[in-house]
Amino acid sequence: MLDDLHPALSHADWAAVWLTLRLASVTTVILMFVGTPIAWWLARTRSRLKAVVGAVVALPLVLPPTVLGFYLLVTMGPFGPVGRFTQWLGIGLLPFTFPGLVVASVFYSLPFVVQPIQNAFEAIGERPLEVAATLRAGPWDRFFTVVLPLATPGFITAAILGFAHTVGEFGVVLMIGGNIPEQTRVVSVAIYDHVEALEYAEAHVLAAGMLVFSFVVLLTLYSRNNKVWK
């Protein structure tokens, strides 16, 4: 039915759009849960390990996606440690599967989620927590009633950036995806395929869609008062 409304997008292209949104959503949800404790620790710790952990989290910002793609392909393959483990668990191998892409995306987009949340936590400072403690709020109580509300803009920024960055993923997916419809053929890969097959009109529709989407996301981000994300 959707195909009738948008004749330029084939069924396969719609599947790629839907898959991309699904991948970005799942990745973002996982990253909010994984990223928050990391961000909290990074914002509060005085440990010398802070620099090390911070650097590891930031690695995907500077590494070419091929590095991540190569190591994921080798470690998640049947001869790699992760691959042996997933086979032992009975879930098979991760490359060329949707869960495999989720794992890759969680690594790939980690800094985009951790850093805004960490900045938000750091901006709160010690004072509100000390005040809450004198009012006999326990640690969990303090986190949920003081920290979370104050850090909400940071969480929103983190979610938007994590989602958008996952949508923009290409190199890693090309290396470990295997181009399977409704499993690993995301929009960026579909565009690449159209261009390779000289289907410029189809490539154009998807590419223009990505352009508009990305612009709107960034516009939303920068239009919000950017006290937190600097």
Binding site: L73, V74, M76, G77, P78, F79, G83, L93, P95, F96, L174, I176, G178, N179, Y192
Partner: peptide, 14 residues
């Protein structure tokens, strides 16, 4: 993506 990557998928056992 090309025949070399196809061979690489098989070589890594994936």
């Amino acid at each position: 993506e090309n025949i070399a990557q196809t061979a690489q998928f098989v070589q890594t056992g994936n």
